[in-house]
């Protein structure tokens, strides 16, 4: 029952008011069109202008949240909202480790908790389209997805093992002024399971999963975009309660 109430409060809080200018720490992403890796009917998707955090949410940021909202502290949260790995590497429910640790992206968070954090800040999680659209950008261009060197670079970044997430700002900063979209942590998005809208991602139903073996190529707009396959794949493997040591998030806002 408490979980239900929380969920209700959460959904109310998500209706954040639109702001004309991006909030502090956020960058304005101008609207435009892009071609997602998987499309549902339409080949291109229109993305409206939005604001996106310049960096992933840090442990320090998240500590302020769980201080202000104790029900989201480790040990107090209902298992309905997270797995046991929630903030597991923190020394304590209200301690994040060294000053350096405080600057690392917060990870080991579930979709529910990431959402609650953004709502607390008056923001929301970005959608898959918003995240992917912003992540097309290199340092110099808005859409580098067809530049082989950029694709190769992302693939290298994704392959690099990072036992501990590096501090925020260690990834490259793109043309919008947004850093760390690639090669720091994986990031939650609002509709992370949109590839499986009518399905449970654990089910072994008859429905074709677009990301298993060769089925992954059928319906993909760009079979050469391996970095995108890895991102979509990572998201599709998640459930709302999942926590992973390399999975964090950042917030977005309507403009």
């Amino acid at each position: 029952m408490r979980a239900l109430t929380l969920l209700l409060l959460l959904s109310l809080a998500t209706a954040a008011p639109a702001a004309a200018e991006p909030g502090p720490g956020m960058a304005r992403i101008p609207g435009g069109r892009y071609v997602p890796l998987f499309v549902n009917g339409r080949a291109t998707v229109e993305v409206e202008a939005f604001a996106l955090d310049r960096r992933p949410v840090t442990r320090g940021d998240y500590l302020a949240f769980v201080r202000a909202r104790p029900q989201w502290q480790r040990g107090r949260l209902s298992p309905a909202f997270t797995e046991t790995g929630y903030l597991a590497s923190w020394p304590g429910p209200l301690t994040v480790g060294s000053a350096t640790d405080a600057r690392r992206p917060v990870t080991e968070v579930s979709w529910f908790t990431a959402r609650a954090y953004c709502a607390w800040r008056g923001a929301r999680l970005p959608t898959t389209d918003e995240w992917e659209y912003a992540a097309l950008a290199s340092e110099t261009t808005r859409n580098a997805s067809r530049v082989p060197a950029f694709t190769a670079r992302l693939l290298d970044l994704y392959h690099t093992p990072r036992p501990v997430p590096p501090v925020v700002g260690s990834g490259f900063r793109n043309v919008y002024g947004v850093s760390d979209l690639h090669g720091v942590v994986w990031e939650w998005v609002e509709d992370f399971n949109s590839l499986l809208v009518s399905d449970d991602s654990r089910a072994t139903s008859g429905r074709d999963h677009p990301l298993f073996c060769a089925a992954g190529v059928v319906g993909a707009t760009d079979p050469n975009n391996y970095p995108a396959f890895l991102r979509y794949g990572f998201r599709a493997a998640l459930q709302g309660r999942t926590t992973v040591g390399s999975l964090g998030f950042r917030c977005a806002q309507d403009l």
Binding site: R202, T204, H209, F212, L238, T242, V244
Partner: peptide, 15 residues
């Protein structure tokens, strides 16, 4: 069986 077990064994890191 489906996918030779592929769907039934999908595991994210640490799972």
């Amino acid at each position: 069986g489906p996918g030779g077990g592929a769907e039934a064994t999908l595991a994210v890191p640490g799972h």
